[in-house]
Design a binder for these strands. Sequence first.
DNA 1: CCTTCTAACTTGTCGCTGACAAGATTGCCT
DNA 2: AGGCAATCTTGTCAGCGACAAGTTAGAAGG
Lengths: 190, 190
Amino acid sequence: MRERRAYHHGDLRRTLLAAAVTAINESGPAALSLRDLARRAGVSHAAPAHHFGDKSGLLTALATEGFELLGAALADARERTGDLLEVGVAYVRFAVDHRAHFEVMFRPDLYDADDPALRAARDRSGEGLSLGVATLPADRVGGDALPAQIAAWSIVHGFATLWLGGALPPEVGTDPETAVRAMARFLFTP
Amino acid sequence: MRERRAYHHGDLRRTLLAAAVTAINESGPAALSLRDLARRAGVSHAAPAHHFGDKSGLLTALATEGFELLGAALADARERTGDLLEVGVAYVRFAVDHRAHFEVMFRPDLYDADDPALRAARDRSGEGLSLGVATLPADRVGGDALPAQIAAWSIVHGFATLWLGGALPPEVGTDPETAVRAMARFLFTP
DNA sequence: CCTTCTAACTTGTCGCTGACAAGATTGCCT
DNA sequence: AGGCAATCTTGTCAGCGACAAGTTAGAAGG
């Protein structure tokens, strides 16, 4: 069972997605190659096409997996703490811990953004943040909750993107969680 | 002078950068091809290499141009209004109006982030936002201005990224400037 | 006017990649 | 035991980035 078989790898789909995560962590999503993934998995160069159709199919699956993981992480933080700040911290932690997924998820030119499974996972992950905003006192949010949701999403998403891109100055430090907490206090605070 | 010459195009470097903007606006940076740019400019497939070395060289030049444009836009907004909110609006407007540049600038895996000209332009553009934060009353910022700068940068950068990625819900509307103003009031407001 | 030199551009080629077509193998189901 | 569908392989093609070597335009200097 542990031996490499010529046929019927058994879990090739999952293996390829894991290899994609490794490859993207090494060299970014732009340098990703299906043939390299096949080599890493020890299968022929055309094997990935059977499971994902084409390159964008693989990235669609990876993005879907990412949105599911993000949705679970946000829901967990909200249920555990009931605090919007902690949901935001979980958002940034997800981006840092699942860098490869995150770097694909918000790059819709790389995958098929109309895929039904992806849309469902994406919508579900969005609930995590909007439910988190619902924990805020109503007088801080105002009549319409949408701008507050966008503000919360924007600040943590922007921080995560800048952090991953290495755009932030070194004075920010090496721990993203500390930096997020120091920054997010300017939002929704009287 | 207007005729296409076989040799000595005259302004090929600028022509190729403009073609890259068009191509990225059409299909995103991932699909960019040097040979396609050469075809658009009416030159041979190897002509781009002479001006930019390789693909990452071209994207480095494009990113540098983008940081220069962004720096100018932010400085202009700050000098015109002296208001941090307007600087933030200018940031988002730059991202929307110069989508191709913006999509490359914050993707350092696509270019050479250590290029001296790029670093200089990047640092200069960063001043625009930090000087904008300096217009805030000191009691809203606190002793250390850095977290406030990161907060301001994050919220506008996150909004711009989400907007360009089509990740925001349709209820946000079609005008990014209106949406930014509705959102940014949650930052630095008592 | 003529030579010479250099930057700008072309042609040719290589290995790699994604996509597709057609064939081989395997395990499941009856 | 036999069929069958899913899984994976081999073979092939055009497009791409990078490199090497050759060609041309135009400027610089006598």
